[in-house]
Amino acid sequence: MAEPPIIELRGITKTFGEGAAAFQALKGVDLTVERGDFLAVMGPSGSGKSTTMNILGCLDQPSGGVFRFLGHEVQSLSKDQRSLLRRRYLGFVFQGFNLLSRTTAAENVELPLVYRGMGRAERHAAALKALDRVGLLPWANHTPAELSGGQQQRVAIARALVTDPEVLLADEPTGNLDSERSVEIMKFMAELNDQGITVLMVTHEPDMADYAKTVVHFKDGLVERIEQSERLALKQGASA
């Protein structure tokens, strides 16, 4: 039997509010993500990209439809089970970095390991290793306020990858960065993808989407079309 897709969305709907004020942000999203894919999610503002990412990240529940993660139906999981799923399988990178202020880079990276019950020394070693991977080892004892935006986002990436997640979810990770820093971040994402992590990333910028393998276009709460990225097309064209 073939391995189930890592993520499967079938007819996902999401309605915010009730009655007259109700607003349907997602109108039946179908999406299948295979293990090892690098998805760029694009689309106009308000088209439901973040809402979809929140559902994929098990941070929010859909109003209708089926969401399977590794073959399991997420809707039937309890709140705690969804927390454990995030802890075990998912890594998050946010547009606003979302690091704990007044807490060093190393401690920020250690945070997910705390909830895995890892011992202090082991945790610290793992955090330093992750920081090294994003090239921030010398900055381990600096607080976010002492780091540039690009460095902060790299700390956030280190935090996401320290647990060896199956899936990395990134909602506009380069939205607050200049293009040079953005390219740096995208290179990391691509590298992580090469190492086997499935990456889902929301972005406005076609340049950034080029680092992905698959590009998903959203419009008005629906998936409009799915296509191979130009990079992949070029690469495949070259090898053909």
């Binding site: 941070l59 709140k79 705690d80 927390s83 454990l84 075990r88 998050f92 945070l111 909830y115 935090r159």
Partner: peptide, 16 residues
């Protein structure tokens, strides 16, 4: 609040 959000997002249980 934001710190709590981060903790919850990375998989902290409500009880934790």
């Amino acid at each position: 609040t934001r710190e709590i959000g981060i903790r919850l997002a990375i998989g902290a249980l409500a009880s934790e």
